[in-house]
C-alpha cells in the first residue's frame, strides 16, 4: 500500500537546516491500522505531509499503491490525494461557510463526479458517521466530536484506499475521542488502510502497529497485535461503547 525507502526531508532557512525526516523507511500493508507516535517536533507531521503528498521530500523513494510518486507534478499529486487518500485533521478543517453536506461534497466536486453519484456518496458517508440528520447544519452548530465525524465523512466519501489521520482526537473530549476511535476502527475493519498520527499512547495501542518517531527516524516498531488483544486491553481501560447515532 505504502512503501517509503530512505526518505529525507530538510526544511531550510537562511540560517538553519532542520532535518525533519532522516533516512525514513516504512512499509504499510493493505488494511493495516498504523499509529505513528513521537514527541513534539519529532517529524510526525512531516511524515504525514509526505505520506499524504502534501509536501515533497528531498531524497529517497515513495511508492503509493504500487506506483512511484516521487516525481509527480502538482496536478498529479492533487489527483492522487483526491482519489486515493482521505485526510482527517486535528482541527477538523471543515469549511465554516458550507453546511455539512457541502463540506463532504468538496473533494467529490474536485473529482468532477456527477451530481447523483455525489449525492449518494455524501449521504452514505454521513450515514456511516451518524450525521444524516445534521447534513444541513453548519459546522458551528455541531459539537467538536460531530465536526470530526463530519470530517471523517468527507474523507470517506471519496472511497479512498487509505486514511491519514492527524491527531484525530486532539480537539475533542475523551468521550468523543473514544467515539472517533471506534469509528476509525470500524472503517478499518471495512478494509481501509489507516495511518494515524497521535501522541496519545492509549489511542496508539488500539492500532495494529505503532511506529515511534524520534528526530525524524523510526526508533521503535511495536509488533502487530491481534485485534482481540487490543480490545481486551481497551476493555481493561474502560472505553466507551461505540455510538453511531447522532449526538
Amino acid at each position: 500500500m505504502l512503501e517509503m525507502n530512505g526518505i529525507s526531508k530538510i526544511y531550510r532557512t537562511d540560517l538553519i537546516e532542520t532535518h525533519a525526516l532522516r533516512n525514513f523507511s516504512l512499509k504499510v500493508g493493505d488494511g493495516e491500522f498504523v499509529a505513528v507516535t513521537g514527541p513534539s517536533g519529532s517529524g510526525k507531521t512531516t511524515f504525514m505531509n509526505v505520506a499524504g503528498l502534501l509536501e515533497s521530500f528531498d531524497t529517497g523513494s515513495y511508492k503509493l499503491d504500487g506506483a512511484d510518486v516521487s516525481r509527480l507534478s502538482d496536478e498529479q499529486r492533487s489527483r492522487l490525494r483526491n482519489e486515493k487518500i482521505g485526510f482527517i485533521f486535528q482541527s477538523f478543517n471543515l469549511i465554516p461557510d458550507l453546511d455539512i453536506y457541502d463540506n463532504v461534497d468538496v473533494p467529490l466536486r474536485y473529482r468532477r463526479l456527477a451530481a447523483k453519484d455525489r449525492d449518494q456518496r455524501i449521504k452514505s458517508a454521513l450515514e456511516v458517521v451518524g450525521l444524516s440528520s445534521r447534513m444541513h447544519h453548519m459546522p458551528s452548530q455541531l459539537s467538536g466530536g460531530q465536526q470530526q465525524r463530519a470530517a471523517i465523512a468527507r474523507a470517506l466519501a471519496g472511497d479512498p484506499r487509505f486514511l491519514l489521520a492527524d491527531e484525530p482526537t486532539g480537539n475533542v473530549d475523551s468521550l468523543m475521542a473514544r467515539q472517533v476511535m471506534d469509528l476509525l476502527e470500524q472503517i478499518n475493519e471495512m478494509g481501509t488502510t489507516i495511518i494515524m498520527v497521535t501522541h496519545d499512547p492509549e489511542l496508539a495501542r488500539r492500532a495494529h502497529r505503532n511506529v515511534h518517531i524520534v528526530d525524524g527516524q523510526i526508533s521503535d516498531f511495536r509488533p502487530y497485535e491481534p485485534r482481540a488483544e487490543i480490545e481486551a486491553a481497551a476493555v481493561a481501560h474502560g472505553p466507551a461503547p461505540m455510538t453511531m447515532t447522532p449526538a
Partner: peptide, 11 residues
C-alpha cells in the same frame, strides 16, 4: 484544506 483533499491550483 481544499488543496489537501484534491483541488488543483487551477481549481
Amino acid at each position: 484544506t481544499r488543496r489537501a483533499v484534491g483541488a488543483r491550483r487551477m481549481d
